[in-house]
Amino acid sequence: MTRFCRILSVCLALGAAAHCAGGTISLLNVSYDPTREFYSEVNAAFSKEWKARTGDDLKIGISNGGSAKQARDVIAGSEADVVTLALAWDIDALHEHGQLLPADWQQRLPNNSCPYTSTIVFLTRHDGKIKVKDWEDLIRPGISVVAPNPKTSGGARWIYLAAYGDALKKNHGDAAAARRFVEQLYHNIPVMDEGARGSVTTFTQREIGDVLISWENEAWLVMEKIGRGRFDIIYPPRSILAEPPVAVVDKYAKAHGTEAVAEAYLRFLYTPAGQELAAKHHFRPELDAVARQHAADFPPMELFTLREVFGSWKEAQKIHFDEGGIFDQISRSRR
């Protein structure tokens, strides 16, 4: 029994040591799905800068997954110093369910704490069998569309809201028509993966579906990693301005004594160096100078904001995604 206790305490100690390896500072960034490549470069660049600035070795851990799931993990005790999630609602949850940061967290960094933005675009197969230009092409009968599940994925919520918002605008604010549109759209979606990355794999590796609705940066990643010539990116004339925010998780950062470095890490994202990395990974930079330099990479399109069409995440969540909301109703009518 004493031996058992000893082994147990050793493994407990190992767990504790994983977080504060002696001499070096460690920082944990809990992020959403499509940022793996971007943050692995940011982490390397910022560690180098921090070392030059303070002489401290900085080890930054990164965790990726569906945005809502990641938020739940942080609430349940995954001690992230910073979170970089797909939407503000998931960071609001950290305040609401765990008091991990103050309610006004979004006011602490520029641009509502969004160092980069993105939008929702389409990816089609290059064979040219199916031609789509705009949202209404996606509801043509016989077209099979792939998109993740809004219940679990942040990107999927932006996708849903983009589709709904565009339909609302086309129908001069007629909510019933917009609802009919998303209903028809989701009837054309045979599989809904848990996260945006899952949908990309479904579309590209398992070769299911004619059109993938996806983050702009994710669509470009597919072009770069899996090869141009197999897919085409289609920019619809109008889409949503997706705003993925970042925040220091006060409670955990305070406990780890990493508040200063955590904030510096997030502020680094707003510097020209950080913005260049964002642009390189096809996130739309917040800094005008950098955005202008990369203007060619981000075709102009009409982008509406969540605030303009849906008011706030709280309202959008309640009307569309909560239990019994519009998304549930249209999913039920599907059966």
Binding site: L12, L14, G15
Partner: peptide
């Protein structure tokens, strides 16, 4: 997670002793 996670049954005790179980090796 429900047992050892933040807000879980064992959370107050674990926090008092600075032990981390969930989302770590233990």
């Amino acid at each position: 997670v429900l047992l050892f996670g933040a807000g879980g049954l064992m959370a107050p005790w674990l926090e008092a002793h600075h032990l981390k179980i969930i989302f770590a090796i233990p």
